[in-house]
Amino acid sequence: MFELNDKIALVSGAGQSVGEGIAKVLARQGAAVIVNDLHADRAERVAADIRAEGNRAVAAPFDVTDFDATESAVRAAESELGGRTAIIVNNAGVAEQRVTKPFRELDPQDWRAPIDLNIFGAMNCIKVVLDGMYEARWGRVIQISSGSARTGQNINQSMYATGKSGIEGFIRHLAAENGQYGITANIVALGLQKNLEEKMPPEMISRLLEGIPIGRLGDPEEVGAFCAYLASEEAGGMTGQTLDFNGGSQTR
């Protein structure tokens, strides 16, 4: 079950953390993976790790907010892998140029990076692969999002949340437009992930865990396994859904 043999999958932001976990699990399920990251060294490392496991992957470093670069890189990777992209996981979502402040302290130029990445970056990736899915009458679009899209939080992330809210709305319309062509589109809203351990002191992590019933942070390969299901033939009846994958988090 959940085999992805003979499918090509594009995973954006796959050079580390959750994206890396997703890319590796999809490859283990049989997909040939286009490993995207803004930084070439990260994309190449993950692609090499996948190949070392005996699976297929190519590194595709490009900026998803640049449509022309996205289209060029994806076409080149598809040519190398010998097919069209059937699965896309839009994971890239944390802009390097983000400014973490309350909205009233942000300058208008600070609004753009998180919104461009989460909305236009995701739309660019979908646009360049959607025609191939339409022609094949089969495709899977998986959008990684966050509980922040639907829950107000006093954590100085209003622009990130705005981007996630916007792309969630788009995905629901995409699902409605394309379901008749065998193309599904779903949203995975993640909770707190293990990469926070690199950014926060242990005492802060302990406080966060108090609001997570499973008592731990999320694991990238668990997210990857969930994406493998959504990418599979068996998930063909599920589309237009926002699925919380957050350990039962009460704080989101």
Rank of each mutant, 00 (worst) to 15 (best):
L10P: 08
D66N: 11
R112A: 14
V94L: 10
K127S: 13
G93A: 12
A149E: 02
R75V: 14
G179I: 14
A23D: 02
A92F: 04
D107C: 12
I167T: 09
Q157T: 15
A47E: 07
R45Y: 04
L81H: 04
N124W: 02
T100K: 15
G179S: 13
S165I: 08
Q153K: 14
G30S: 11
G132K: 03
P213I: 00
E96C: 02
R172Q: 12
Q109A: 14
I87G: 03
N154I: 14
R252D: 05
L26H: 03
I167A: 00
E96K: 08
I115T: 10
W111Q: 06
D131H: 11
F62D: 04
M133C: 10
N178I: 02
G83Y: 03
A235D: 05
I144C: 07
M238W: 02
A31F: 03
P201A: 15
G248A: 10
A43D: 11
S72R: 12
A176I: 10
Y160Q: 08
D219K: 12
D110A: 12
H39C: 01
N186I: 11
G240Q: 10
G19D: 06
A73E: 10
E210M: 13
D116Q: 11
S145E: 01
G179K: 14
P114T: 11
I22W: 05
L10D: 03
A77Q: 09
N118L: 01
S17A: 13
G93R: 12
E53H: 10
A27V: 13
D66C: 00
G163H: 09
Q153H: 09
A77N: 07
S12H: 01
A14G: 09
R207T: 07
S17L: 03
F226V: 15
L10S: 05
G224A: 14
S12E: 05
R45N: 04
I187P: 00
S79L: 08
V188W: 01
R75N: 09
R150L: 02
I144E: 01
F170L: 15
R104C: 04
K101D: 01
G191A: 08
N186D: 09
N90V: 10
T162Y: 00
N195Q: 14
I183C: 00
P108K: 12
I22T: 06
Q153I: 06
N5T: 15
H173L: 10
G152E: 07
I22E: 04
P114K: 13
E80I: 15
L81C: 10
L243W: 01
H39Y: 07
M123T: 08
K127N: 13
E20G: 01
M204S: 08
F62S: 03
P201T: 02
P61R: 12
D41Y: 06
R104T: 07
I88F: 04
Q29T: 10
L4P: 00
N156K: 14
V223H: 03
A52Y: 04
T85G: 07
L117V: 12
A225H: 04
D49H: 06
